[in-house]
Amino acid sequence: MNSAEFRAVFRYIQALLIITQASLVLTDHREMLPPSPADINWLMHEWTPTVVRETNYSHRAIIPARNSQTRAAIAKVTTCDASAALTAQFFTEVEPAVRWLRSIYVV
């Protein structure tokens, strides 16, 4: 996926967080190819701080990429300053991630 498509996905997630007032996100990166350094920088310094500041986003369940370069790039994002406001848990499969998020969700 090119940079415009990559950023569109994250803008869509941001819109969903705003519209639904959701606070929990599950991201499955298993098939994701490495994002560009510019897109990682954008996630770290623009997208994540904005979303943390403007939404209820508080928890994320992450299924890491199979591609080691992608894992390394996403690891940078999960350790950036804005990510400190988020609780993250890593999983190898979707079902345990969903169970964890459901255990947090309170109506």
Score class of each variant (00 low, 15 high):
residue 65 A to S: 13
residue 54 E to W: 05
residue 107 V to S: 10
residue 67 N to H: 14
residue 88 A to K: 09
residue 31 E to K: 13
residue 100 W to L: 08
residue 82 A to R: 01
residue 19 I to N: 10
residue 88 A to I: 14
residue 80 C to V: 09
residue 67 N to K: 05
residue 32 M to E: 05
residue 75 A to C: 02
residue 79 T to S: 14
residue 57 Y to D: 03
residue 8 A to K: 04
residue 11 R to V: 15
residue 83 S to W: 06
residue 74 I to V: 12
residue 90 F to M: 08
residue 64 P to V: 08
residue 94 V to M: 11
residue 66 R to Q: 13
residue 67 N to C: 10
residue 59 H to W: 12
residue 56 N to K: 03
residue 20 T to N: 14
residue 71 R to A: 10
residue 87 T to D: 01
residue 67 N to S: 08
residue 107 V to I: 04
residue 24 L to T: 04
residue 53 R to F: 00
residue 99 R to V: 10
residue 101 L to S: 02
residue 87 T to H: 06
residue 56 N to T: 01
residue 13 I to A: 07
residue 75 A to Q: 11
residue 45 H to R: 11
residue 100 W to T: 08
residue 76 K to G: 00
residue 39 D to S: 05
residue 9 V to I: 12
residue 100 W to E: 02
residue 72 A to F: 12
residue 10 F to P: 00
residue 17 L to S: 04
residue 29 H to Q: 12
residue 93 E to K: 13
residue 69 Q to W: 08
residue 84 A to C: 07
residue 34 P to I: 03
residue 71 R to S: 07
residue 91 F to L: 10
residue 19 I to S: 11
residue 17 L to I: 04
residue 1 M to D: 09
residue 98 V to L: 15
residue 70 T to Q: 01
residue 44 M to D: 02
residue 85 A to P: 04
residue 99 R to I: 10
residue 29 H to Y: 13
residue 24 L to Y: 10
residue 49 P to S: 08
residue 62 I to H: 00
residue 106 V to I: 14
residue 17 L to D: 01
residue 70 T to W: 02
residue 61 A to L: 04
residue 28 D to G: 06
residue 39 D to R: 03
residue 89 Q to V: 11
residue 83 S to A: 15
residue 22 A to K: 02
residue 76 K to Q: 14
residue 54 E to H: 12
residue 18 I to D: 04
residue 6 F to Y: 15
residue 7 R to W: 08
residue 57 Y to W: 15
residue 85 A to F: 06
residue 41 N to P: 01
residue 87 T to G: 05
residue 87 T to L: 03
residue 45 H to A: 07
residue 34 P to R: 00
residue 59 H to E: 10
residue 9 V to N: 04
residue 90 F to Q: 07
residue 43 L to P: 00
residue 44 M to I: 09
residue 47 W to G: 00
residue 103 S to D: 15
residue 46 E to V: 11
residue 26 L to K: 03
residue 19 I to L: 08
residue 30 R to Y: 07
residue 38 A to L: 05
residue 72 A to S: 15
residue 38 A to R: 07
residue 72 A to M: 14
residue 12 Y to T: 15
residue 76 K to V: 05
residue 78 T to Q: 13
residue 65 A to K: 03
residue 19 I to R: 09
residue 92 T to S: 14
residue 53 R to L: 05
residue 86 L to Q: 01
residue 77 V to C: 04
residue 26 L to Q: 04
residue 51 V to R: 06
residue 61 A to H: 00
residue 66 R to N: 14
residue 10 F to S: 01
residue 97 A to E: 05
residue 43 L to S: 07
residue 37 P to A: 13
residue 101 L to G: 00
residue 16 L to R: 14
residue 92 T to W: 05
residue 15 A to P: 01
residue 97 A to C: 09
residue 95 E to W: 07
residue 72 A to G: 12
residue 59 H to K: 07
residue 40 I to V: 15
residue 23 S to L: 08
residue 21 Q to N: 13
residue 7 R to M: 05
residue 19 I to H: 10
residue 24 L to E: 09
residue 46 E to A: 13
residue 91 F to H: 06
residue 102 R to Q: 14
residue 50 T to I: 06
residue 33 L to H: 12
residue 13 I to W: 02
residue 24 L to M: 09
residue 2 N to Q: 11
residue 61 A to E: 01
residue 104 I to W: 01
residue 90 F to V: 06
residue 55 T to E: 05
residue 94 V to I: 15
residue 3 S to C: 09
residue 1 M to W: 10
residue 61 A to W: 01
residue 32 M to W: 01
residue 4 A to P: 00
residue 7 R to Y: 05
residue 73 A to N: 04
residue 36 S to D: 10
residue 83 S to D: 08
residue 6 F to K: 01
